[in-house]
């Protein structure tokens, strides 16, 4: 994309420079901030369209995690008797679903964000990063609603999370967002060129669900090399972290560290890849 190269001293008008952009480009996250109103209005539009038009409205954001929790509890908790680190299975499952659904919805929506907004991309300029970013931020609404449901469930179990662990929840949520955004950036940019992405994505997310400790505990995986390999799925550490913070589950230190490293790598590489190919979006859509 053409770039915005700084501005003149405050008095002068903004100077915008157009020129061919090829190769690796600066991330220019500052420009993203200049356009934060566009990002916010895109988030608002997605939420409004998603919920205002659906017959059940915001109830969907409650139904999705609750229904998944019930199915998991019956099949894995009751019938298969999968061990849940000694925690009540329903709370165990819902705590895992909380970050997982943020990840799943965020990856899904951000991957489609460029293709679905082709009419904007070909008509008006704004930093292209705004679209996948807005898609991921939009899922935070569902996340907050699901968190309230979880709070209700914990209250029903008469369980109060330890305050010194509870304070870590925002950081864990931020790590989940970071993972989601990193993968979303890669997939959204790839999907412009290879539409295969959007066709295979539901399948890949299903595999990822099985490869994440939602229905079972990460402690089922043998310690050592296997568990480290398992931890390369960046949501593993996040999910175990949520259980540690909210339910007093086992510590997830090393898994969390792997998550943070993998997630950061995904985000940084995703940003650079996105910026490298974004000049071609308008011509390919």
């Amino acid at each position: 994309m053409s770039r915005l190269v700084g501005s003149d001293p405050p008095a002068g008008p903004a100077r915008i420079l157009l020129r061919p952009a090829r190769g690796w480009n600066a991330l220019r996250l500052g420009e993203l901030w200049e356009y934060h109103e566009v990002v916010l209005v895109l988030v608002w539009r997605d939420i409004k369209v998603r919920y205002a038009q659906a017959a059940l409205g915001l109830a969907w954001a409650v139904l999705q995690p609750v229904a998944s929790m019930i199915v998991l509890s019956v099949i894995f908790g009751r019938l298969a008797r999968v061990p849940s680190d000694g925690l009540p299975y329903a709370a165990f499952a819902l705590t895992g679903l909380l970050p997982w659904q943020l990840f799943q919805n965020g990856v899904q929506r951000s991957s489609l964000s460029l293709v679905q907004n082709a009419n904007l991309l070909t008509r008006v300029y704004f930093p292209r990063l705004s679209l996948p970013l807005a898609a991921v931020l939009g899922t935070l609404v569902d996340f907050v609603i699901a968190a309230l449901v979880l709070a209700g469930l914990l209250a029903w179990y008469d369980w109060t999370p330890a305050p010194e662990r509870l304070v870590w929840v925002p950081a864990l949520a931020a790590l989940a967002v970071l993972n989601t955004l990193g993968i979303g950036l890669w997939l959204s940019a790839l999907n412009v060129r290879y539409r295969d992405v959007q066709h295979t994505l539901p399948f890949l997310l299903q595999l990822a669900l099985l490869a994440s400790p939602i229905a079972y505990s990460a402690n089922l995986i043998p310690e050592g090399g296997w568990r480290t390999l398992y931890g390369l799925n960046p949501m593993v550490g996040v999910i175990q972290g949520f259980r540690w913070a909210l339910l007093g589950g086992p510590a997830a230190g090393s898994l969390l560290a792997i998550s943070a490293v993998v997630g950061s790598l995904l985000l940084v590489s995703g940003l650079y890849y996105f910026r490298r190919v974004e000049w071609s979006f308008a011509d390919r859509l």
């Binding site: 994309m1 053409s2 915008i16």
Partner: peptide, 21 residues
């Protein structure tokens, strides 16, 4: 190109001020 929707393949342009397309 002027609207920065697509990129020029060569050459360059400069604007002084807010651009609306």
């Amino acid at each position: 190109i002027l609207a920065r929707v697509t990129d020029p393949s060569e050459g360059e342009g400069e604007f002084f001020g807010r651009v609306g397309a």
